[in-house]
Write a protein that binds this DNA or RNA. Sequence first.
DNA 1: TTTTCTATTGACAATGATTTTCATTTTCAG
DNA 2: CTGAAAATGAAAATCATTGTCAATAGAAAA
Lengths: 143, 143
Amino acid sequence: MLKKMLDQFQNYLSSKGLRMTGQRELIARTFFENQRHMSTEELHHRVQKISSQVGYATVYRTLKLLSDAGLAAGRSFGDGFTRYEPDNQIEHHDHLICTRCGAIIEFENDRIESLQKSVAGQYRFEVTHHVMELYGICSKCRS
Amino acid sequence: MLKKMLDQFQNYLSSKGLRMTGQRELIARTFFENQRHMSTEELHHRVQKISSQVGYATVYRTLKLLSDAGLAAGRSFGDGFTRYEPDNQIEHHDHLICTRCGAIIEFENDRIESLQKSVAGQYRFEVTHHVMELYGICSKCRS
DNA sequence: TTTTCTATTGACAATGATTTTCATTTTCAG
DNA sequence: CTGAAAATGAAAATCATTGTCAATAGAAAA
């Protein structure tokens, strides 16, 4: 899975005449290996533990490349900064976000997806992607 | 409708020991009178046309008050800044956003809403509010 | 009306995430 | 190897948003 993602990144870079460098591979690898919904800061921190001279700008730049390649997706959940998650463009999921402890739970529901498509159809609107986030209190915080 | 909104704002301010000033009324009125999904910049611009010495900070502060009062809701649609829309807390709606021309279309669908609740229930999650945005190409841009 | 207390305002500085700049280093095709 | 083009890191620049603060205005009391 990880290798596949890195290969796809490699392919994307080649197709654009860009280079796979040590930093880019390290950042991409760290991103794909670790838990989802990482902020740029977290990713930078993890990468620095391995190779301490990687700069913030390079993390931002690489994340942007991954986005452009369709391998990462950025979202802003309302706190100040953008979080990224691997985007394997096959299965899509949405989020439950606890406003008390910040936990993020993923879910998917095909019936909602198909209803969304039907609504869009009523407006002759062609959906390319969507965001659905349910905010509230998670079970842990409730008990 | 407009009077009702302004009255609610007035009530909220009173309940908090705050004052309804000329600037606040002007900003709130302009906000409620005009089209939805206004950015702070747009609102500031419109307000300045009427009373040219109203500052940015006051627009931000008033928008925050309106949010706290439950009369406005802020969202970030991916471009750099926050847009606000009147929030009459009775009927909820979601958005279709055209990534080509920027058009924002509102819709509501009760079946999706109830499915959302049932999904949340599976995770023993108590939803307070949600965001659903479908991005794509609108009918105008498609033809 | 006048006083007095407190909220409000606007100009401007500060913040903080993200981007850009730029001089230096690295990559890779020839 | 070599040299052109891409990539990097450090620091400066952006830009939306928030905080500061001295000056002003509103409301209640006198």
